[in-house]
Each structure stands twice: as structure tokens, then as C-alpha cells.
Nucleic acid binder design. Structure first.
Lengths: 342, 342
DNA sequence: TTGAAAGCGATACCAT
DNA sequence: ATGGTATCGCTTTCAA
């Protein structure tokens, strides 16, 4: 830290070696005799030496840090992802620098700047719902910084992607709603531009189609801010309720939207599931405690964080340019509870 | 980042100045002519120069980073705290390095090591429930690293503390339970050593005493792991249920314990609040959606993070040694809902 | 097997 | 007002 920090030079002086020798001894260089190594290492350990990571970074142009770009920390899904990332990063000697976009493209861009000035070794990215312009990210990537996408991914950059099986999850939930007797299933989802939005929508459409239920575009509602703003959720639900044929079920596409919709139905004293059934993507820890217990599709968030971090660190540390990128698709889990069973 | 990064030396060469001049011009030194400043700054901006923070860190022995020591990220309370910290840090040019102790003292100690090797400028600390030994933290502190405690604090180190008004919150909730007709109020709480534990307990005792209800030590149950392990919650509740006079109410002392207890009562088909009322500290986002809606004391977690970060950054950047430390006590909010009203 | 010296990028002291 | 040079701590090439 500050006071009690011994440097290589200190050791060198104390033992009458050169700093190069000390450096090499500590890194177990083959050119150093065992005897010297022992002396140096013993002294280092006794005096609680630890390399100054900042100096190492400057020299090596590696910071052993990973930048993290996501929407919001106080969000069950992302908090779990972070925990997964941290578990891997910790073991590999990396630390993570977290930035939140709050679903704002502009903030995301500024965060990217900050991260690049910090000279992070790589980036884990989940895009904001506003993001249209990938040029900054592309520039950084082509500048040699490895990137791994998770959750909200983009094909504009050729790299690894880690996502949940959104299509399958959405498909299974929608199918469940249909089999539960619902026919007018609305879908409330995030910004249209996001990968998760189109994938979840695809699963929804697939299930409807399979059961010969026509897809009604008016039943698909987008929340441009991904549900960060409660009002946008309330507005679209109100629109649905005002329709001539209001939906008999809601399939909600994210943590915030699911909880927000559920809360709004509560507030409006709409009986769940009798009047409207509901189920959606949600990583809330205890949906079974809700009133009624809430049907959810759970994403393997911790796992997603772990996988993304592993892939990124591998990219960072690989000697040769990786060209064979993979899209990891992690399975989701459907938990059917009372909120969706008519 | 890597490729497109211009250095001061590059600018100096391009403009035929010395690097000292360029450095001074960029930092607006009074010794540099306006003309030169303009030339240098224009060139810097045009070529997208940004100082290499690693080099600055090495030189200045300041990393513009803050270490964060807490139990667990995927926990509503801490996630909100992190968000608060981030909001302040971001604006002040600091980044935060997050480490999780998972309530383990040993892991906490290793995290401290890692953070100190990273030469963080300061530390925001919420102790793990196991932590007895403060010597490492003390050493770091006396080594000159500013520390601010939040939530789970300790008086072993003289510094700022930011906490919720635990006594008052616990007092009001307990009082509410009493007024709601409960007489045998059990208290399920974290590890006995934690500051939050003794404070919340104090509020609980205060309310009981005020109503001439004897304090029954058997009604106070500790979870050494702070409820990280579901089993420890189940065990103590089962003990309570097995008593000759089982409690008619539970006052639970943390996010995890509150949710865990509620879930266990559910599982055991115990009617809430008729058989047992329940209420507790909890920063869950939607306790009103629970079945029944859950009475909670909410801590101003975001605010706590902000305040702690502000205090820490002030400490870091203050020239003179601070001696006048304060304990910020932030108000809590009691939300009475159905789970506690007999 | 070991040492001297250069260099990573920015800064500050000492000259001029 | 500007330039030369040493320094932060560590690594690495080149010499010996």
C-alpha cells in the first residue's frame, strides 16, 4: 500500500544484488542460481514484498483488469452476473471495473472512454437498450482490445457471445401459457433493437404459430428504457387493457418489466391469473413468495458471468489472434407457478 | 487503449517541443505561454490524446481507485450501495474495485491483500460476519490508507462511519409488532459480533422494555453466516417453533434472513400473520407483492453508498490529516404491510 | 550467473 | 517561457 511497501530496489540494496537479479530471482528465471533465488525469496517473504502492480502495468502494458459495461448493478440478473465474473476474475488475478449505462447510449460511450483510459485488458459488454451506434466499440476492438458480449449482444463485432437460450425460454413459457388456456397473449419487452428482444420475440412467435394462433402486433409492446422507468410499463399495460380484446396473459421479457407489470396489475386490482395470467423472464430470488406465486424463466446469470469472464481472459492471454469465435447458449429454466395457471 | 494511443512524447516530437512543455501546457501551467498552450491542446484534442492513467499512478502514487470490501453483490442492499458509490466515484474520476467476502474472514483478508497490491487510494468497508481480527485492516489504515466504514462498522479504527439508524428502525418495527398485539416476539439476526447486530438488538430490547415485556434470550437467534446459508435460518426457526411458547412474531434483521424466514414459514404452511407475524430489515424492491405483503424496514442503501464514497474521497483528497471523524446515521423507513398486522 | 542501463508515460526539479 | 533530466517500480536486452 503506502508505507510498508518494499520494492525490488530495496531488496537489491539490502542483499547487495542488482535489481535485475532480484527481479529475475523472484520470477524464477532459469538464469539465476538456486542459492540466490532462495536468499532473495526468503528476504522478500520475510519483508512482505509484493510487486507494485501499477509499475508492472506500465511496463507490460497490461493492467490485469477487465472493464464491465452493463445497465445497472441493482438488478438481480446483473448482480448475479457480476458475482460470476468476480469469481473467475479473482482466481485469475484480474479485477473488474464496473460501469453502469443506466440504459443510456451516451453514458455507455463515456464509460467506454473511461475504461479505455484505464487501459483495461478486455471488455465484457452487455449493451444498453438505446445503443445503435457500435462504432466506438468497434474502434476499440480493432484497436486490439478483446471483447466478449453477454446477454445483450451484437453481431457487429466478431467475437465470443454468451447468452441465455432466449428463444427456447420464451417458446416454452408461451407454450405453457397457451396450454394453460390463454389465447390472447401479450408480450411486453425491451427496446426493439436489442438481441434479447428479437430472440425472445422469436420464441413467442414460434409458440403461437405452432398452435395456429395469429400473431397480433398490437399485443407486442416495447419499453424503450427496458423498464427502468415504471411509467413506460404502466403506459403499455394500460394500452393493452384498453384494447377491445384485452389480453388474457402477459409474457414479460425482463426482470424489471416482469416485476413492474406484476406490480401494476396488483395496483389495478386485476386478478392474477384469473383475469390476466403473467409469467416472464425474471431472476428475482423468491418469486414463489409472491401473491400469487410468480411463473418465471430463470437465466443462469452467475454461470453467464463465469463463462463470459473465462472466455475473455482466455482471449486476453492467448498468444495468437483468435479467429474461431463461439456463441455460448446457456439453458434457461422455466418455473411454472400460480400466476400463469388459469 | 492500445493502438490509437498518443503519448506526451509523441506530441512533443510532432510539435518540436520538449515533453515537459507539453505536459505543462496540458495541465495549464502558468509558466507556459497561451500560444503554446493552444497549439499543444489543439493537437492533443485533434489526435485524441488522453493521459495514461497507469503512468500517472506510478508517478503520483495515486491510483484514482477505491477498493470495496463487502459480503456479496447479489444482495439487494449491497447492490444498491454499490450503485450509490459508483454514482459518486464516476463523477470524481475514481473507479471502484469490488471484492466479495462471502461472509468469510479469510476471504476478506485475502481481498484486502489484493486491494492493497492494487494500491487503491482508499477503502470502503463493510465487515464480514466472521470478522474478529481487525489487525490487518488496522495495519493498512495506519499505513496511510483512508478507510470509511459503512453498514457493518467497527470502532477499532478511528474513521468515518456511515450507517442506517438501526436502533430506531428496530425499535419502531418491534413497537409496531407489539401494538399489533404480539407479545412473544422473536428476533432472528446475524452474527453476534457485528455492529448492526447489536444495534438492531438494542432497538428491539428498547421497545420490549418500554412495554414491560421481558426480554427472553431464547427468543433471540443468531445466524453466524448472516443467512447466507438457508439451513441456519431454518434451524433457528424450527427451534423457535418447538418451544413451549412459540413466538407470535418474528423480527428479522437482514435482507437474507427476512426473505429466508418468510420463505420457510411459507414452506411450513404457517399462516402469516395469524400464526406468526413477520417483519424485518429488507431492501427487496417489491415486498408489497409478497403473499402476504411484507412489512419491512428499508435502509437508504443508495444514499449510504453515496455518503460513504463522498466521505472517502474527501479523506483521500484532503491535504491535512483528518482528525474529526463523524458517524453518519441515515434514517430508515418502516413500511407496515399485512405480514405484521394481526 | 550476474549487472548496467534503457524504457514504459508522465511529472517535477533544476537550469537556461 | 522552455528544455534537460531524474524519478516512480519493474522488466528486459545487452554485456561481462
Amino acid at each position: 500500500m503506502k508505507i510498508e511497501s518494499i520494492t525490488i530496489t530495496d531488496i537489491a540494496k539490502a542483499l547487495n544484488f542488482s535489481s535485475s537479479t532480484v527481479s529475475r530471482a523472484l520470477r524464477d528465471s532459469y538464469q539465476i542460481s538456486e542459492a540466490t533465488k532462495r536468499i532473495v525469496k526468503d528476504y522478500a517473504k520475510k519483508n512482505n514484498y509484493h510487486p507494485n502492480l501499477v509499475a508492472q502495468s506500465l511496463k507490460s502494458n497490461k493492467s490485469k483488469s477487465i472493464g464491465l459495461l452493463l445497465c445497472s448493478v441493482p438488478n438481480n440478473f446483473f448482480a448475479e452476473v457480476i458475482s460470476g465474473i468476480e469469481s473467475i476474475a479473482y482466481n485469475s488475478g484480474y479485477h473488474i471495473i464496473i460501469t453502469q449505462s443506466h440504459e443510456s447510449q451516451e453514458r455507455e460511450a463515456r464509460n467506454l472512454d473511461h475504461l479505455s483510459w484505464r487501459s483495461v485488458d478486455g471488455l465484457l459488454v452487455s449493451l444498453s437498450s438505446e445503443t445503435m451506434d457500435m462504432s466506438k466499440l468497434q474502434k476499440i476492438h480493432s484497436g486490439g482490445v478483446p471483447i466478449v458480449f453477454f446477454d445483450r449482444v451484437s453481431d457487429c463485432i466478431k467475437t465470443h457471445q454468451v447468452v441465455a437460450d432466449n428463444i427456447e425460454g420464451a417458446y416454452r413459457l408461451t407454450k405453457h401459457l397457451i396450454e394453460s388456456g390463454c389465447r390472447n397473449i401479450a408480450h411486453i419487452t425491451s427496446s426493439p433493437g436489442l438481441s434479447i428482444t428479437s430472440e425472445r420475440r422469436e420464441g413467442y412467435v414460434k409458440a403461437l404459430t405452432e398452435y395456429n394462433i395469429p400473431v397480433n402486433e398490437n399485443y407486442i409492446k416495447y419499453c424503450p428504457h427496458g423498464g427502468m422507468i415504471m411509467e413506460e410499463i404502466e403506459v403499455v399495460i394500460q394500452e393493452l387493457l384498453n384494447m377491445k380484446q384485452p389480453p388474457d396473459a402477459l409474457f414479460t421479457a425482463s426482470d424489471r418489466i416482469t416485476i413492474g407489470s406484476f406490480a401494476f396489475l396488483h395496483k389495478k386490482n386485476i386478478r392474477i391469473p384469473e383475469q390476466i395470467a403473467i409469467g416472464g423472464f425474471c431472476n428475482f430470488s423468491s418469486p414463489e413468495l409472491f401473491n400469487p406465486s410468480l411463473t418465471t424463466i430463470r437465466q443462469p446469470a452467475f454461470e453467464m458471468g463465469k463463462t463470459a469472464a473465462e472466455l475473455l481472459i482466455a482471449l486476453i492471454e492467448s498468444k495468437r489472434q483468435e479467429t474461431n469465435f463461439e456463441k455460448k447458449i446457456l439453458p434457461t429454466e422455466l418455473f411454472v407457478r400460480k400466476s400463469s395457471v388459469k
